[in-house]
Design a protein around this nucleic acid. Sequence first.
DNA 1: CTACGATAGTTGCGTGCGCAACTATCGGCT
DNA 2: AGCCGATAGTTGCGCACGCAACTATCGTAG
Lengths: 146, 146
Amino acid sequence: MSKWLSTHELRAWRGFVLNARTVLSDIEADLTEFGIDGGDYQLLAMLSEAPEHRVKLCDLASQLRLSRSGLTRRMQGVVKKGFVQRVEHASDGRSAYAELTSKGWKFVQRVAPHHVRSVRSRFVNRLSKRELSALASAFEKLGRHR
Amino acid sequence: MSKWLSTHELRAWRGFVLNARTVLSDIEADLTEFGIDGGDYQLLAMLSEAPEHRVKLCDLASQLRLSRSGLTRRMQGVVKKGFVQRVEHASDGRSAYAELTSKGWKFVQRVAPHHVRSVRSRFVNRLSKRELSALASAFEKLGRHR
DNA sequence: CTACGATAGTTGCGTGCGCAACTATCGGCT
DNA sequence: AGCCGATAGTTGCGCACGCAACTATCGTAG
């Protein structure tokens, strides 16, 4: 294991560190016409896929890779927009749920196809099948270590 | 081309969007003991590799995927730390260069091996050769579209 | 030479985030 | 029952960033 990165290793790392943010923020920019940003979309997407459209706040924070305080502020936004409501936990006075409202659910259904097109044109369609499946397994490995 | 993402496509996209930031900030966290963050390191690394250790500010901004104002603030930090000096352009009164000081150069040489170890342990070593080369070509493609 | 669009960099402002400190609640141990 | 560490969520604060507006300079067309 050399002191430096090999050419391949460096290309992968450099490409990743330089371009990852850019791709993400380009795709995020396509959401602004709907009045939300990427963080809001991720949150709504998580709730959409959850049973009963609700997730405990602390679980939501870790699924979204947000700090607890970060999620608190995220929630303020989507609650104010009427897409999510806070539901107190029945038996645990500390916890609460985030629950998709029907307005939020309709909103996701309306926006998702546009977002999917955006992800296709800026990400999926630019990559080969081989690259896509390598990325899938790579980021699953990288995410597992936590 | 379906309205939705296939399983593979979704795994790649979800993995990427959820884990990319985390990996980056974990590696960034390993730099705090040296008193800099990832943005500073990238800037210093760019200068280290440039001829004469100097790059025009506007080129530096685009290489680092920073806005011009973002670079202005970055520069304030590394200049104050004494790692970089600003050099006015001789014949163009608008432009200026960022140039690595000898202190900055020594600093990079000292920190780089630790950073490489960090990148290895949190990124390179967790991935297979196949995944690495797929990532390299993938992010080069994604970066080219701008 | 002058005028004007383009380019380089800075500044004011708003935003999203993490960290640390705080409050409130829970659950186990004695 | 009472205590205490762990857990859930909020708040104050600071930071890095982008956008838009601004200044200064450049280069070119007339």
